[in-house]
Simulated scan of single mutants.
Amino acid sequence: MPTDAGSTATSSPLLATDDLSGLKEGEIYTDPQTGKQYRVKKTILPHYSSSGPFGLGDPEDRTLRRIEADVIIPNRMNARVERVECNAQYMDLIKCFREEGAVKGLSQCKEVLSLFNACKAEKFHDIDYRERMTEEYLQERSEARRTGMTIKQRKLEQFRQWKEKNEGETK
């Protein structure tokens, strides 16, 4: 194992930055060896979740937290199934419930409900579909971390720019 001059291979001395427990958030820490100053930032999140250009996490990080894998992605899958993949069955179910009423519809609309549930189960058990939805989520999260704005915020900003541009042309 190669070693630097002045350090030993048997023990690794603690760096001055290894224990910053005595410092408070926002204080300035000066490295005694280099003289470089750092602002103390304390967080309960791991470094990869609070790094990045806007402190929202590393844009290139592709790991999923448990809540993303177990809650966010299935919710996105469910919304996509209802809006796109199984929309015809979903609309038939809504139509049946509107005609029969919500309570009576539970017993009267079983056929339509079973068709919708079968379509939904097919999509939820499709590994390729889940991977595609996960990839979309990771791309959106990466872009949000890179720009500091969510999709809705970026669309709103684009609209504002478009409106400002069009108002300037009409005057």
Rank of each mutant, 00 (worst) to 15 (best):
K155N: 14
C96K: 06
I94H: 07
E131T: 13
R83C: 07
P74K: 08
E60S: 13
D31I: 02
R62G: 06
M133A: 12
T63M: 08
S7C: 05
G148V: 03
E68R: 00
G52S: 02
D128L: 08
L45Q: 03
H125R: 09
G168E: 09
D18Y: 05
V71A: 13
P32F: 01
I28H: 00
H47D: 13
R145E: 11
S21I: 00
L156H: 08
E111I: 07
T43A: 06
T63L: 02
F124Y: 11
S107Y: 09
E82M: 12
D92Q: 08
T150Q: 12
D31C: 05
E82A: 05
Q139P: 01
L56P: 01
D61W: 02
N75I: 06
L106R: 13
E99W: 06
T17A: 14
S49H: 02
Q108R: 10
D70E: 15
I127S: 12
I72L: 14
L14R: 14
C96V: 09
E169T: 07
T17P: 00
A144L: 08
R154N: 05
R76Q: 13
P32Y: 09
A102Q: 09
E164H: 15
Q33F: 11
D58I: 03
V71C: 06
D4W: 03
P53K: 07
L115M: 00
G55D: 04
Q33W: 04
K36D: 07
N166H: 13
E164T: 15
I94M: 12
R141V: 12
E135G: 09
F159P: 02
E122F: 01
S7N: 07
A144Y: 04
